[in-house]
């Protein structure tokens, strides 16, 4: 009996130890930026209430938040899975774009197929293309030992040209003012989960991906290999883990997750390929992954919080003419303060 209570007490204390630095970091970041806001002459309280509550005031706001949440969660996972093995995937943007290109290509080329066939093909194409785009830097790392940070970033830049080519040369929609392709077949579109305001079912896939990744990493020997590699690659190699394969696979899985989010953007949100559909999801995804300190259980929650901030930020720019970048600075500061809390704890 007493052992159980202490066990419970420990868990509560552990949870509190984890949460308190986060709360302090959020408060400190908002306070710091708030002082700046006030100095420039903005209405701080109204700005903050817009940022924090837009998502919860109207059904539309909430659906907007969920739509933002899907790519953010997947981008964060695309960064966090390789991070578990100690590798930095900064290429989620390119992987998303190429995944979207793959999904759109399949959706357009086979537009006549029924949903039962086309939708899985579109999703699979996103995953495969995203995985392939990550496989290039992964292979360069495996074969030549080239730093993955640099190559994944380069692949982003290359993907910008690729999407531009596809959207202006191959399947260009001549009626659109912005580089955009023609729509994909109706059978490739995600069914709606909620009709009004429209919420597509991509969120189900994203959450399922998060659960599968979490279970795999924490409950299977393969996941153990991944964690061990991230903790000390040299020791893992000495004790029989093929760490180079771990690096390779973790990056490819990260790319596949980003590619999935590209497919969801195409098949769920836009129903076509639009240049710029990647938004700033990559940066936010990395911030989420780092804020969660690579903890796969924390990623979905942190991602939701950031989605709320982002939706609030656009509303703030619309209604109050305050640049969205302010919120980006808040997010970067929260990250910095969360990281600093580790230093404080160490002392």
């Amino acid at each position: 009996m007493s052992e159980q209570t202490t066990e419970l007490g420990h868990s509560i204390k552990a949870l509190a130890d984890t949460l308190i630095p986060y709360i302090l970091a959020v408060v400190a970041a908002f306070a710091a930026v708030g002082i700046f806001f006030a100095a420039v002459g903005f209405d701080v309280l109204q700005a903050y209430s817009t940022i924090l509550f837009t998502s919860f005031r109207t059904p539309n706001g909430f659906v907007q938040t969920l739509l933002k949440y899907v790519p953010l969660l997947l981008q964060a996972l695309a960064f966090t899975v390789p991070l578990t093995a100690g590798k930095f995937n900064i290429g989620g943007e390119g992987q998303l774009i190429v995944g979207a290109i793959g999904a759109a290509a399949v959706g357009i080329m086979f537009s006549g197929l029924p949903m039962l066939l086309l939708l899985p093909m579109v999703i699979l194409a996103g995953i495969v293309f995203g995985g392939f785009w990550a496989a290039i830097p992964a292979w360069l790392l495996y074969r030549f030992g080239i730093n993955e940070i640099l190559t994944t970033v380069m692949m982003n830049f290359i993907s910008f040209s690729l999407i531009d080519y596809v959207a202006t040369e191959i399947w260009r929609d001549p009626t659109a003012g912005h580089p955009t392709t023609v729509p994909i077949g109706a059978g490739g579109e995600f069914p709606l989960l909620v009709a009004k305001p429209p919420l597509n079912s991509g969120i189900v896939l994203a959450l399922a991906a998060a659960v599968i990744v979490y279970v795999y990493v924490n409950r299977t020997p393969g996941g153990y290999d991944l964690v061990a590699t991230g903790a000390n690659a040299r020791a893992s190699r000495v004790f029989g883990i093929n760490v180079r394969v771990m690096f390779l696979l973790s990056l490819i899985v990260g790319g596949a997750l980003a590619g999935l989010s590209g497919a969801i953007e195409v098949a769920g949100v836009h129903h076509r390929l639009i240049e710029g559909l990647q938004s700033n999801f990559l940066l936010l995804g990395i911030i989420i992954g780092l804020m969660a300190r690579g903890n796969l259980l924390a990623v979905p929650f942190v991602a939701f919080f950031i989605a709320v901030l982002e939706v609030g930020a656009s509303a703030m720019q619309r209604t109050m003419m305050i640049p969205v970048e302010f919120v980006f600075i808040v997010e970067a500061l929260i990250l910095l303060f969360v990281l600093l809390s580790d230093v404080v704890r160490r002392r």
Partner: peptide, 11 residues
């Protein structure tokens, strides 16, 4: 060569 500092003792 033998130690995972960020993992726990059991791991």
């Amino acid at each position: 060569d033998g130690f995972l500092p960020t993992a726990n003792v059991a791991q």
